[in-house]
């Protein structure tokens, strides 16, 4: 009898230990994905949930946004380092495409395609899409890039190890490695300005009002007016990034 009791208590002990170990393993396996679960869902409406609208029909390709962004955020002046830039797409009559972005739109756009060959030409201002399910956030191995509760994708410079995973992961090419800091750098939607009650620099300087930003929770915001009045589209919707940059008049040729 004693032997039997010993056996059953040992069996109980093993069973409980296995349960405990299993819970720990499952718990630790799930925990890293909490950030992703959080990112996939909008937080409660206690904070603004920022999104951006760009009206391609109004953009005149002056490059003010790109210039202002570089000045505001101390982005290196050399080409190839951009948080915000402008591209010119030209669709020719034969269906082929010509894309140019001289120094990100800071230098003058000069149309090289003869006018007789042009079917359609337009400017596409580009910047971080501040995705709700950001691929760049998901690949960061150290938790240095994240989505703030306001829906803005930010980089923690002190934590970033400069591994460049996020630069490769971003399907929109919105990140670069800062040549001096050796950390990933990107559009912050001028977080420092938003927190001071100012508009982001590129929105402030846009001469035609082609850029609109606002709180998706606020149904009276100019952004909601823009979204209601136009049929908008995000870039690469098939990737399901939860992009919050809505374009009006976006052609399917835009990548």
């Amino acid at each position: 009898m004693g032997n039997e009791r010993l056996n059953s208590s040992r069996r109980n002990f093993i069973r409980k230990s296995a349960l405990l170990a299993g819970t720990l393993v499952v718990g630790s396996a799930v925990k890293p994905f909490q950030a992703m679960l959080f990112a996939a869902n909008e937080p409660e409406k206690t904070m603004p949930w920022y999104a951006i609208g760009i009206d391609i029909e109004k953009c005149i390709g002056c490059g003010s946004c790109a210039r202002a962004c570089k000045a505001e955020n101390d982005v290196p002046k050399e080409p190839f380092f951009f948080r915000s830039w402008v591209e010119q797409y030209t669709i020719k009559n034969d269906g082929t495409l010509a894309v140019q972005s001289p120094n990100g739109g800071i230098d003058d756009f000069v149309q090289t395609v003869p006018e007789a060959e042009i079917f359609k030409s337009f400017f596409v201002p580009k910047m971080c899409n501040h995705c709700a399910k950001s691929p760049c956030v998901q690949v960061c191995p150290v938790g240095a890039t994240y989505e703030s509760p306001e829906g803005i994708v930010l980089v923690d410079e002190k934590y970033c190890i400069g591994c460049r995973y996020c630069i490769q992961a971003c399907p929109y090419g919105c990140r670069y490695l800062h040549p001096e800091k050796q950390t990933a750098d990107k559009c912050t939607l001028c977080y420092h300005r938003l927190k001071k009650g100012l508009n982001p620099a590129c929105f402030d300087v846009c001469p035609t009002g082609a850029r609109i930003y606002g709180d998706l929770h606020d149904m009276n915001s100019p952004l909601h007016k823009f979204l209601k009045e136009h049929s908008t589209q995000v870039l690469k919707p098939q990737l399901n990034t939860g992009s919050k940059l809505f374009y009006n008049g976006l052609s399917s040729e835009v990548r």
Partner: peptide
């Protein structure tokens, strides 16, 4: 502050917010 809101350092948001604004309006 790591993990306060998610898998990141919450204080870094304050550090970014403290940067000076260059365009004054």
């Amino acid at each position: 502050s790591f993990g306060k809101y998610g898998h990141y350092r919450a204080n870094s948001m304050d550090e970014i917010a403290a940067l000076p604004a260059h365009h004054i309006g």
